[in-house]
């Protein structure tokens, strides 16, 4: 279980910023509990603090106020329980697919590393490219390598920050289905940030609509539609419209 309680984030030196009247509250009083095996998405326009919230959950950034706990333990930094996928694949260009995935396993014995790497890369369908360098991969393949790197440790939590936003729509849909299949098998708790509302509706159990300045959770929507969800199904479309309205894009 991921518990975020009353989390606020102010960028820069809070005292100095307050004096200058320039306090930038990226987040303010955010409460969020994500249950085991749940898929939760954070949607919102840019600058609403959704990525900041995800970074705080991952331990990459620390909150200014409030606390974050994973299964009851306070988060003070990145841990192996949490896998993270960024908007960009962020592969080391000097390492092959295999060695990039290995980065998440360096503290394990070599034989176990190799076995887990082969399995994780097989899972994302890249076995033929295990010795390829990132420059030889397409955008979709690079992002799949990043997913393999995040999942190779078999984390209980997978956090994704707009993981498919840089991909073409065909590759994006394919990777969404792929991710869902991996989730059905391993049942990690998944939190992802997106600004693609249809993506949120087709994947999530719960959608949190965020609004910025300061970043707060504006609305929470449960998605009761059974999976697999056809993108063109009327209930999917209706929910999409509801969320777009909640985002208040006007």
């Amino acid at each position: 279980m991921l518990e975020i309680s009353d989390v606020g984030k102010v960028f820069g030196d809070p005292a100095a910023a307050a004096q200058a009247g320039l306090v930038h509250h990226a987040l303010d009083g955010v409460d969020l509990t994500v249950g085991q095996h749940e898929i939760v998405s954070l949607v919102g326009t840019s600058g609403c603090g959704k990525s900041t919230l995800l970074r705080i959950a991952s331990g990459l950034d620390l909150p200014t106020t409030g606390r974050v706990a994973l299964d009851g333990r306070a988060v003070t930094g990145p841990t192996p329980e949490v896998g993270m996928v960024f908007q960009e694949p962020r592969l080391m260009p000097w390492l092959t697919v295999r060695e990039n995935v290995r980065l998440a396993l360096l503290d394990l014995p070599k034989a176990e590393q190799d076995a887990r790497i082969a399995e994780a890369i097989e899972d994302v369908g890249l076995s033929k490219f295990i010795d390829a360098y990132p420059r030889q991969l397409s955008g979709g393949m690079a992002q799949r390598t990043a997913i393999a790197r995040a999942l190779v440790r078999q984390p209980s939590f997978l956090l994704l920050d707009e993981p498919f936003s840089a991909l073409d729509s065909f590759t994006r849909q394919k990777l969404q289905q792929h991710l869902l299949a991996l989730w059905e098998r391993s049942r990690f708790t998944m939190v992802f940030v997106t600004h693609d509302v249809l993506e949120a509706v087709s994947l999530s159990d719960r959608i949190l609509v965020m609004r910025g300045h300061p970043g707060r959770i504006h609305r929470e929507i449960r998605v009761e539609i059974p999976r697999p969800r056809a993108r063109t199904a009327p209930e999917v479309r209706a929910l999409e419209e509801e969320i777009v309205a909640a985002l208040d894009l006007s």
Binding site: P78, R90, L103, D107, R149
Partner: peptide
């Protein structure tokens, strides 16, 4: 950051 997430020494 990736190195931090992966827990590199």
């Amino acid at each position: 950051e990736v190195a931090r997430v992966c827990g590199l020494s």
